[in-house]
Amino acid sequence: MDWNRVEGNWKQVKGKIKEQWGKLTDDDLDVVAGKRDQLEGKIQERYGIAKDQVRSDVDSWYGRQKW
Rank of each mutant, 00 (worst) to 15 (best):
D28K: 03
D37H: 09
G15K: 07
D26Y: 11
E40T: 11
V54P: 10
D30C: 07
G48L: 10
G15L: 07
K18W: 05
N4L: 10
K14G: 02
R55N: 10
G41R: 11
W10M: 03
E45F: 06
R46F: 05
K42C: 10
W67Y: 01
E19L: 12
N4C: 13
R46Q: 15
V31Y: 08
K18P: 12
V31E: 15
R64Y: 02
V32P: 01
L24K: 04
W61R: 01
R5Y: 09
V32Y: 10
D26W: 05
G22R: 07
W10N: 04
K11I: 15
E40R: 11
K23I: 00
S56H: 06
D52T: 13
L29I: 04
D37W: 06
W10C: 03
M1A: 14
I43A: 01
R36W: 05
V6T: 08
N9Y: 15
Q53I: 12
Q20S: 03
K35Q: 11
D27W: 13
E45G: 14
L39I: 03
K51I: 04
N9V: 12
D30N: 13
I49Y: 03
K35S: 08
T25C: 11
D37M: 06
W61A: 00
N4M: 13
K23M: 09
D52V: 07
E19A: 10
L24F: 10
A50F: 15
K42V: 10
R36D: 02
D52G: 05
R46G: 09
N9W: 15
L39C: 12
I17W: 00
Y62A: 10
Q20P: 02
G22D: 06
D57R: 02
V6N: 00
I17N: 00
R55T: 14
S56L: 14
D52C: 01
D26V: 07
D2S: 09
D59C: 06
G34K: 08
Q20C: 08
Q53H: 11
W61V: 01
K66E: 06
R55G: 05
G22I: 02
M1D: 03
G48D: 04
E19H: 08
S56C: 00
E40Q: 13
Q12F: 09
L29W: 00
A50Y: 14
D2E: 12
R55D: 09
W21N: 05
L39G: 01
W10G: 02
I43Q: 04
L39F: 00
Q12L: 06
A33G: 06
W67K: 05
W3D: 08
V54Y: 04
D52E: 09
W3L: 09
G63D: 13
G22L: 11
L29M: 09
G34W: 06
V13C: 05
K16D: 12
G22W: 03
Q65A: 10
W21M: 02
G34P: 01
A33K: 03
D37K: 15
T25M: 13
Q38P: 03
G48V: 04
K18N: 09
W61T: 01
E7C: 08
E7W: 05
R46S: 04
D2L: 12
E19F: 13
R64T: 14
A50K: 14
K16N: 09
I49H: 00
D27E: 15
Q12T: 02
N4D: 09
V6S: 02
T25Q: 13
S56G: 12
R5W: 15
M1T: 10
Q53P: 00
V58W: 01
D57S: 07
E45I: 09
